[in-house]
Amino acid sequence: MPSIISVTKLSKTYSSGFQALRDINLEIRRGEIFALLGPNGAGKTTLISTICGIVRPSAGTIFADGHDIVTDFRAARAKIGLVPQELTTDAFETVWATVSFSRGLFGKPANPAYIETTLKNLSLWDKKDSRIMTLSGGMKRRVLIAKALSHEPQILFLDEPSAGVDVELRQDMWRLVRTLRDSGVTIILTTHYIEEAEEMADRVGVISRGELILVEEKAELMRKLGRKQLTLQLQAPLERLPPELDAYRLDLARQGTELIYTYDTRGERTGITALLRDLSAAGIRFKDLQTSQSSLEDIFVGLLRERA
């Protein structure tokens, strides 16, 4: 089945001359939850805004459910719902009015029953006649989600959905996202938290300085991110490793005074116990040890260097 979103050679240079996106190629699969992971200023919002028609692309093409977002914008945009990063809501409208407005805006006839269900799913039903300005930040975020869902979109964008959101709303939101996914909606969310990508996504795209530096199944990415190193400082330098330790794929460093073991924290076993036992059996003694984990920043840097 073709991708539900297909981005080809997309670049964006703002009128200030700043290039926010560089040659982005991205295929989003129908029905998946895709997390766009990257530090602040990486270009996540720019990418989403371009797909949604809010920012004009400088080069490249985008298809949403087979429709070119420029030449066939009606069909493309009708499929898409967007929850923006900022809490931008009307003030004087009621919750009911603003959500009904969104549905009409996206070309759908009124459907009070559907809007009622949506508001109930978001715990907004008892606020339906409240003016938006009287609501808390968390409630406003719910209103934005309800607006984005008002026209029953096939594709839902959530830009930094957990920024400034309390635990309860986060849990509600993730429950809703999973329900939507189960009903066939494709969800693309942006975040700068690895944990969030890990918790929610099927696949993860890492973006940094306007470049999409990798797109992977979450499991694969987490394996890379979950790698740790154990460094052992030896009492006496080794010239080479005894063959019975080959299975551990150890590295000798610092003229044979350090042994480095790389392992996966996500594995059933890390292999550390066995390694220490086998080292002892081989008569290798050590005076100190440390473990270290690469941070997201390290991984970004590593990935960028790999590409260079």
Partner: peptide, 14 residues
């Protein structure tokens, strides 16, 4: 001014 224009811009409307 308020930013709610995002919705108009992203809607299937000419």
């Amino acid at each position: 001014f308020s930013g709610t224009i995002y919705e108009i811009l992203s809607a299937p409307i000419s």
